[in-house]
Design a protein around this nucleic acid. Structure first.
Lengths: 214, 214
DNA sequence: GGCTGTGAAGACCTTCACAGCC
DNA sequence: GGCTGTGAAGGTCTTCACAGCC
């Protein structure tokens, strides 16, 4: 496991390859070439081979990659042979959507506890997950062995929540609040921001006019 | 507006700069240096200056950037001086969350119509947006002059929905379904996938063990 | 013949470092 | 003195192209 620095884009693509392999599951093809993998994930064949080559040689020359084997290998690389225990902070609109989103559990991420500052939201959520008062965060996160936190609080509360999660020993945070979190380097943070993505689209549409849009 | 190829990361950072400028609004500082902009968005001062230099010279040497002026300039570059008319397809968990998410309107994106295949969801949504039967998509998208579509359907329906949006003349799609969309090149697509981000975190946590994690 | 694995080349992005201006 | 704007250097990521194997 002595691996060099793997880029974020490579990891993203590995996830896409894995998703494809899982979909072409039992009834799918037994072997896929780098070209097929590329076409169906929006990459190139050389890119696929390069991505995989950082971790070893998993293909068979002249044939391609064995679907089952590559699936297991990729799951291993991505750390998805284990299940991850996740805490959700903030049971508002986004939080509730996440609680009801079965794809997360299907892909190895169990939301084992949720928190909200609003007493009315405390109790058992429709999804079956328990919603705790925010005060209980440290206790419950520790007792449930949570390693990943999801921040779905209002932006004003995000920074403080991040600090509390970090102090409680959570190793990674997925942040839905449109703010920059200042966490210790030991915590890996990734932010998802719908408005930011829309702004990216806005830019693309705006600058198209400049060039001769076909 | 004869601009060269601007990278996606540059555009993302421009959005972050703009967000910061807007937050440090009326009561904020009148001038910000590239160093300040960088520190508060998680970038570097050279990066900030380079990003801006693709579009012109907006700073004052020895002083920095005028907040109001740079805010206007960035909004112009990103195409945010106009408002964007957005259609949402799929009023499930994610779709509802988006309808209730005021930040989108605040940042220039108005969801002017929503669609769902389920007759029970048709009618006026709590957010005030009208939910139409899916059959009406082409009519309503055209009559409302929609330019951006958000796909929040189940994965199986995403591809077909994308094609319909593309055929109806929508210029950009924000896709929440975990599938690769095959749309004509005239349509800009961006996909947001929570599980994919979590898998990125999973990888980071897993590969840390390999190195000597401090 | 077909396809992988991979050095080398090329494209792209970031950082450096400093001239130029306030 | 302080800060911008920017060529040049350095680094990273992608694509090419082909040797090696099935």
């Amino acid at each position: 496991m002595n691996q060099r620095k793997i880029s974020e884009s490579t990891v993203r693509r590995l996830s896409l390859y894995l998703r494809l392999l899982r979909e072409s599951g039992p009834s799918g093809t037994r072997v896929l070439s780098s070209r097929e993998l590329a076409e169906r994930t929006g990459s190139t064949s050389a890119q696929v081979r390069k991505d995989l080559s950082f971790f070893g040689s998993f293909g068979k020359r002249g044939r391609g990659y064995d679907v089952d084997e590559l699936e297991r290998t990729l799951a291993g690389i991505l750390g998805l042979q284990q299940r991850w225990r996740v805490a959700l902070i903030g049971v508002g609109k986004i939080g509730s959507a996440l609680l009801g989103y079965g794809d997360l559990a299907r892909r190895g991420f169990d939301i084992v506890a949720a928190f909200d500052i609003d007493a009315a939201k405390v109790g058992r959520h429709a999804s079956g997950v328990n919603v705790w008062p925010l005060d209980e965060l440290e206790n419950v996160v520790r007792s449930h062995n949570v390693t990943i936190g999801i921040i779905a609080t209002p932006p004003e509360a995000a920074e403080k929540t991040a600090r509390r999660l970090a102090d409680t020993g959570v190793a990674a945070i997925l942040n839905f609040a449109p703010v920059k979190l200042s966490t210790p380097e030991t915590v890996t943070v990734r932010t998802m921001d719908v408005a930011l993505e829309l702004e990216g689209l806005s830019f693309a549409l705006t600058s198209e006019r400049g060039n001769g849009a076909s």
